[in-house]
Amino acid sequence: MGVNETKLISDYGLAESIKNSNQGVFELVFNYYYSGLVIYADQIIKDTAISEDIVQSVFMKLWETRESIEIRSFRSYFIQCVKNRCIDHLRNQQVKHRFDNRIPDANHLVMEEDLWTKNELAELIQNAVDDLAPRCREIFWMSRYENLKVAEIAEKLNISKRTVETQISKALKILRVKLVDYISVLILYFFY
């Protein structure tokens, strides 16, 4: 039996062990090939961290598909897988680079104030406020738009502070429900 035949038999035996979920054999194969494959990938990618990620992803894929693998030579299998992943990575980088060049940098965009935020959002809020019961709307308006304190509203309308607090709380709950789809935009609008 020649050296190549022995190698094929041992690779076949290792592949069968991995196929049968033998983690010890998988770790043995990983430890034997990992560093050489990272060096190989790094010659193509020129970034060690990405090369390590690529090699790890090849081993993860091997483990995930272990039950259906047919490997005659681990060396050939790994070289081909790593090469393909490197090519995929480089293609993705080229596509990303092309699109990055087409999309203007946000720091260089000249925009007037965000019209959608100013107009559309204000209209949504106003419609929701308009739908409140008259007394609730009046109290909410005085609180949020006239910036009156609870005590000032109570005195002005000749009602208790507790009634004012209850009406403001009720208005906020109703608005939260009506504007639930816009909460993230509202947070940005009011807090940034």
Rank of each mutant, 00 (worst) to 15 (best):
I54G: 06
I187Q: 15
D131R: 07
N92L: 11
D100S: 08
Q80T: 15
S10E: 09
I174Y: 07
I54N: 05
K96T: 10
L62C: 08
L37M: 14
T166L: 13
I39P: 02
L148F: 04
Q126Y: 10
D53N: 15
E138P: 04
V177W: 03
I125A: 08
I187F: 14
F78C: 04
E146N: 11
H108Q: 11
E113P: 08
T65Y: 00
Y189A: 15
P104F: 00
L175F: 04
G2N: 14
S35A: 06
T163V: 12
I125W: 08
L175H: 05
I44H: 02
K7G: 00
R102D: 06
V58A: 11
E5M: 09
S35L: 07
T166M: 13
V3L: 13
L115V: 08
L121R: 06
S68L: 07
D100T: 03
F78K: 04
L14Q: 14
L186I: 11
V180Q: 12
I45M: 02
V110A: 08
E155W: 02
L157E: 07
R66V: 01
I9V: 08
R102W: 05
K156S: 12
K61W: 08
Y192P: 04
L115G: 04
I153M: 10
Y182A: 10
I168F: 12
F30R: 10
T6K: 14
E67V: 00
I103L: 11
Y33V: 02
A154S: 13
S57Q: 10
V150Q: 02
S35M: 06
I153T: 07
Q56C: 04
S57P: 08
L121C: 11
E146M: 11
V95W: 06
F59Y: 09
I139D: 06
S17E: 13
N22A: 05
M142Q: 15
T65P: 01
V58C: 13
V38K: 00
E52Y: 00
N22L: 03
C81M: 11
A154V: 10
H97C: 03
V25P: 07
E138G: 05
T166C: 08
E138A: 12
G36P: 01
E112V: 10
R85A: 06
S76C: 05
S21G: 06
L109Q: 12
S143L: 02
A128E: 06
I187R: 15
S57W: 00
A171H: 06
N147S: 09
Q56A: 01
E138R: 12
Q23H: 12
